[in-house]
Amino acid sequence: MIKIRDLEKIYRTEEVETVALNKISIDVKEGEFVAIMGPSGCGKSTLLNILGLLDDPDTGSFLFNNIEVANFNERKRAELRKHNIGFVFQSFNLIDELTVFENVELPLIYTGVKSVDRKKRVEEVLDKMQIMHRRNHYPQQLSGGQQQRVAVARAVVNNPKLILADEPTGNLDSSNGNEVMTLLTDLNEQGTTIIMVTHSEHDARYSHRIIRMLDGQTVLENIMV
């Protein structure tokens, strides 16, 4: 599903040049659950941003479903992203002005799904995430665990092929964290590919494979048995 080769990303300021990704090459197969680990500043988030088509690499190749997307412009990236990729963030990133229902509905609006179908789909997902009873609440009225469940619901509502999770349990206590990890595992078992950046060895154990990074390069890969 994902094939990146010699990907490089360098951040430059007037005086400093920081190599975030140093000719990195990774493959992710469809249906895989991959965890990316490494110390702060090793390039995990940069990699995730590029995989999520939020950022573009300086050099190298990025094949997404056999299509070269490294040089896509913003419009094309947005198009591909909204149909194929769901995101889960450490800080949930829900829109405070929208209710639970409306937050989950948002990706469907951007993909042009009709109102009736949207309602049905959102209700299904909220039901599945066991958050239906909170559908008319605003994010600030929910606990952290509930907010992350809404974020996961929003990530899956479009049936994406790939979910990118950036430290999804980072802001949660262990009980809520486990709940979220179970949700992600369930989704993976239903066929969704998941790439997750984490600092937690515990969470990483839910994945099939752990890629360890240092200074913008992969240094080790653990296959989980």
């Binding site: 419009r75 909204k82 990133n93």
Partner: peptide, 16 residues
């Protein structure tokens, strides 16, 4: 800015 970021991530383009 965060809201704008979220909307972009969820597929909103610049025009939208």
């Amino acid at each position: 800015s965060r809201e704008v970021g979220i909307r972009k991530v969820l597929g909103s383009n610049r025009g939208q």
